[in-house]
Structure formats: structure tokens, C-alpha cells
């Protein structure tokens, strides 16, 4: 069953007077429960495609649907809600909030999606859920630590915990091991594979064939198009 579908995506960046077309009519389907790896050379538009799939960026042309709902036809508020509830992101550089500790970072998507008054009654349950996830990723004893006190691998695990705390349908990972050494990268991939085994749909972007090989399916982006 198709969870997400990208149709004829086009995206062009302006670099000064030069226009660079990174996506030139990309068509892609992501099936529910699969782990899909998008590969390609640096600068081929992998991350751009991932950002558009997760509504972090908009295409110049084309559509993206998630669970049958067109992301860019929806209003801004609806798109924000989809980003909060249905999509989880794991970034290459973790993108944790430095002023908050591990638990607070993991709780952030819950806080964003819960009205203030509801939060007062649901915070206990949210904290319990976040603690459970942190235990799963092996960081229960680092909950009160700030991101700067963690290693790269630990930070990425916090980012994964944050991405899945709202139980999204769609987990997007942009070079999740790109900033880590081999050992830590392996741990992260084990973590993602574990999630996938439990039914989590994952799309990850990587230029590392070893990482890509661990996915159920691979697509390669060449010259702004999916290679047949």
C-alpha cells in the first residue's frame, strides 16, 4: 500500500545568476512499512527530495501526497499539523535544541502538538512515553544531559527518539550516519532497522552503499531524476 507519492517534482535553486535544477520531474512511491534508501552523488538533490517529501520545502512543480492527502494543496496550518503528527525527521547534524536537555528535546514534538491546557493533563503520559523511547534507544540515563554533553551517536539517537515520539507514519532520515564514525553509524542503523521491523516506514538518504544496502529498496537519483 502506497503511503507517500511524489509526482513530477521539479525544484530549481538560484545560485546568483545561475539556476540549478536539482529535481527534474521526480516520481516516487513509498510503500507502507518499507525502508527506502535514496542514493546518489553529492548535490544530486537527495536531501531536497527528502525535505519536499516531509513538507520542509516546497517544489516548484509537482505534488506530494501522504496517505492520499496532497501536502501542498493543504493549508499552512494543516501542513504544520501533518509535519507534527505524521512525519518524523532525523537530520545529519542532529539539530537538537541546545538549551534543552535530552528529555525536553524528545518531548518537544509532543509539546508543539498539544494545546497548553491539554498539556497540563497529558504531560505525565508524554514524559512516560519519552522515557520509554529513550530507554529503547539506550539513553535513559542521559535524560537530564544537554546535547553538548553527548557524543555524536548519542545525539543522533536523541534525534531519532524525538522523531518517533509522536509515532509518525513516515520517518525521514537525511544522512543519519553521515556525521558519525563506522561504529556509531552501525548502532544508528540498527536502531532504524529495529524501528522498521516494528512497522515504521522509513525513507533515508545516503551516499554510503553499505547503509543503502540495509534498506528494503533503493532508488538512485541521477541528474534530477530517479534512475530506472
Amino acid at each position: 500500500m502506497v503511503l507517500a507519492r511524489a509526482t513530477k517534482l521539479h525544484k530549481t535553486y538560484s545560485l546568483g545568476k545561475t539556476k540549478v535544477s536539482v529535481l527534474r520531474g521526480v516520481n516516487l512511491e513509498v510503500h507502507e512499512g518499507e525502508m527506502l534508501a535514496i542514493t546518489g552523488a553529492s548535490g544530486c538533490g537527495k536531501s531536497t527530495l527528502l525535505h519536499i517529501l516531509g513538507a520542509l520545502d516546497k517544489p516548484d512543480q509537482g505534488t506530494v501526497s501522504l496517505g492520499g492527502e496532497d501536502l501542498f494543496a493543504a493549508g499552512t496550518w494543516r501542513r504544520d499539523a501533518i509535519r507534527n503528527k505524521d512525519v518524523g525527521f532525523v537530520f545529519q547534524f542532529y539539530h537538537l535544541l541546545p538549551e534543552f536537555n535530552v528529555l525536553e528535546n524528545v518531548l518537544m514534538p509532543r509539546m508543539v502538538g498539544t494545546p497548553t491546557l491539554n498539556w497540563l493533563s497529558s504531560s505525565r503520559e508524554a514524559k512516560s512515553k519519552a522515557t520509554e523511547i529513550l530507554e529503547t534507544v539506550g539513553l535513559k540515563d542521559r535524560m537530564k544531559h544537554r546535547p553538548k554533553e553527548l557524543s555524536g551517536g548519542e545525539r543522533q539517537r536523541v534525534a531519532i527518539a524525538r522523531a518517533i515520539v509522536n509515532e509518525p507514519r513516515f520517518l525521514l532520515a537525511d544522512e543519519p550516519t553521515g556525521n558519525l564514525d563506522a561504529k556509531m553509524g552501525k548502532g544508528i542503523m540498527e536502531c532504524l532497522r529495529g524501528l522498521n521491523r516494528n512497522g515504521q516506514t522509513i525513507v533515508l538518504v545516503t551516499h554510503d552503499p553499505h547503509i543503502a544496502n540495509q534498506a528494503d529498496r533503493q532508488v538512485r537519483l541521477v541528474d534530477g531524476r530517479i534512475e530506472a
Binding site: 499552512t76 504544520d80 509535519r83 539539530h95 524525538r162
Partner: peptide, 16 residues
């Protein structure tokens, strides 16, 4: 600025 991007990627609205 980057924090703003992170918060928005987590679903925060522009108004928020």
C-alpha cells in the same frame, strides 16, 4: 534561526 527551523520541522506554526 536554526532553532526556528528545528521547531518548525517539528510542526510548530509560523504564528507560534
Amino acid at each position: 534561526t536554526r532553532d526556528i527551523g528545528i521547531i518548525k520541522s517539528l510542526g510548530a506554526t509560523s504564528a507560534g
